[in-house]
């Protein structure tokens, strides 16, 4: 699913943000990515989503070598990945409902099916009551759940989440994580960056730890 082979990422002349990273994540795996602030977690996600070019090494996502991917193919790769980013990235001029619906619109899903799926997804993340609100009027936790719903709605093969529970209380974190596990059981691959060790402890899963741009741990906990 996702494979890194001796990947380096350098910004500018000699700032190594990622150094010699190698790992392989299989289909259906649930992987946590941890590490201190500035370790390179977000950078790693930008490489996977082809927003940043790899300085050296090779990255394979869903069987495609990213270095060889043509510009025009990138959007189609991204459609198979669900993203929850650190800063949510919600459309301010669209309602919660419309935000969650967007990936289905891009995939040309029929109106009726869209409605059904969005309603169901909003229920699962507990946002039915705010579906007609605009993101600016939501709490941080609610915005985060909108982003999560949008990442899951089109049932992508891979979910990449950057601090998906950063703004949620322990109770909600558990709900969201359980939702993730549910999807994971269906064969969706998860790569979740987090500082929240309590989340990791709860579950038997794989843990990747980066520090200062290097992979320092790859273990099952």
């Amino acid at each position: 699913m996702i494979e890194f082979k001796h990947v380096y990422k350098t910004y500018g002349a000699d700032r190594h943000t990622l150094r010699d990273i190698s790992f392989n994540i299989n289909k259906g795996e649930f992987v946590f990515l941890t590490g201190p602030s500035g370790a390179g977690k977000t950078t790693l996600f930008k490489l996977i989503s082809a927003y940043e070019k790899i300085s050296s090494g090779e990255v394979f996502v869903l069987g495609h070598s990213l270095a060889k991917l043509k510009k025009g193919q990138i959007p189609f790769l991204r459609r198979k990945i669900g993203f929850v980013l650190q800063n949510y990235k919600l459309l301010k001029n669209k309602t919660v409902y419309e935000n969650v619906e967007l990936p289905l619109v891009i995939l040309d899903v029929a109106q009726k099916e869209r409605e059904q799926r969005v309603t169901e997804m909003l229920r699962q993340v507990g946002l039915e009551t705010v579906k007609d609100q605009y993101p600016d009027y939501l709490s941080g936790g609610e915005q985060q759940r909108v982003a999560i719903a949008r990442a899951l709605i089109h049932e992508p093969e891979i979910i990449i989440a950057d601090e998906p529970t950063g703004n949620l209380d322990p109770e909600l974190s558990k709900t969201i994580l359980n939702l993730f596990f549910e999807f994971s059981k269906k064969g969706v691959t998860f790569l979740v960056a987090t500082h929240d060790y309590r989340l990791i402890d709860k579950q038997k899963c794989r843990l990747l730890k980066v520090d200062n741009g290097q992979l320092v741990e790859d273990a099952v906990v």
Binding site: G72, P75, R78, R79, F83, L85, K89, L91, P103, I106
Partner: peptide, 9 residues
């Protein structure tokens, strides 16, 4: 956001 969810250019 559009590019993130895979809208073509």
């Amino acid at each position: 956001i559009y590019s993130l969810i895979g809208a073509t250019r």
